[in-house]
């Protein structure tokens, strides 16, 4: 163990609330000690869940571990906490570049450069992206929910972004249900706010008559996803499926909004 790492580890052990975890995690990441880096980053995040830099560190470590989805989530949270976080913008640009989505990578890098205009590494990265511009492509993602039947993605004003829902009689009820979902979303937010429960993460219910299950999940603050399950579907399984669909929808929204 290098002296620096030893010193920072000792300091963190002496004072677990120290922000030195940010530096220690980054040094470990740069040395390729990704398991240790992740442990340090996530322990820091537990103490500072509202600190954008902590989410950024988790994003960098996750990205190095090849965990693109988790890195995306971490950087997205960092940006929610600080929309001008250059590190998170750079990270999202990197993920977009890796996926071949040069347009999105360029957009994130330009946003990062507007925050730190003198950063030469950002300028180099932007240059690289622009040079690849002739090969610009957007991956084929016509719908945020293409792999999931009986699901809808809707915003807070009842606008339908994707998916399709059939009613009990087999008819298409997507638009009317989307309009109702907007009201449910507002009500769920009101309930958790007034009862001091924090942000709502999911809402599930068993439907009378049909016995079908419904699960709502919020991919972002302004959208909600409804996933329906056949009668007899375990509640926990539907929740997991909904979470996976919500993660997919979140990436889709980030890409196209």
């Amino acid at each position: 163990m290098s002296d620096d790492i030893q010193r920072m580890t000792t300091e963190l052990a002496r004072n677990p609330r120290s922000l030195i975890f940010l530096t220690l995690g980054e040094v470990l990441r740069q040395r390729g000690q990704l398991t240790a880096a992740l442990a340090v980053a996530e322990a820091g995040l537990l103490r500072y869940p509202s600190l954008p830099d902590a989410h950024d560190l988790v994003g960098r470590v996750r990205s190095d571990r090849g965990e693109g989805d988790e890195a995306f989530d971490a950087w997205t949270v960092a940006l929610r906490l600080n929309p001008a976080h250059a590190g998170a913008l750079r990270g999202l640009a990197f993920l977009a570049f890796r996926e071949g989505d040069l347009e999105r990578a360029e957009r994130h890098l330009r946003a990062a450069l507007s925050v730190t205009p003198d950063d030469p590494s950002l300028r180099n990265a932007l240059q690289k992206v622009i040079q690849h511009g002739g090969q610009r492509t957007l991956p084929d993602r016509p719908s945020p929910l293409r792999d999931r039947e009986q699901s809808l993605l809707v915003d807070g004003r009842g606008r339908l972004f994707g998916g399709r829902l059939r009613g009990v009689d087999g008819g298409d009820v997507s638009e009317v249900v989307a309009a109702e979902i907007a009201g449910v979303m507002r009500e769920a937010g009101r309930v958790t706010r007034i009862l001091a429960l924090g942000a709502w993460r999911g809402l599930s219910m068993e439907c009378g008559g049909s016995g079908a299950l419904a699960h709502f999940a919020p991919p972002t603050d302004s959208t909600v996803l409804l996933v329906m399950g056949e009668p007899g579907t375990p509640v926990g399984r539907l929740a997991l499926e909904a979470e996976a669909s919500a993660a997919s929808a979140r990436r889709w929204l980030e890409r196209y909004q």
């Binding site: 009689d169 109702e180 809402l203 219910m205 439907c207």
Partner: peptide, 25 residues
């Protein structure tokens, strides 16, 4: 609200509702 949503899709009223939030259920 949820009863209204289910009824437009042809379902009966909700049997059990579970709202999960950051700090509780």
């Amino acid at each position: 609200k949820l009863d209204g949503l289910l009824s437009v899709a042809g379902h009966g009223p909700p049997r059990v509702i579970h709202l999960e939030a950051e700090l509780g259920h």
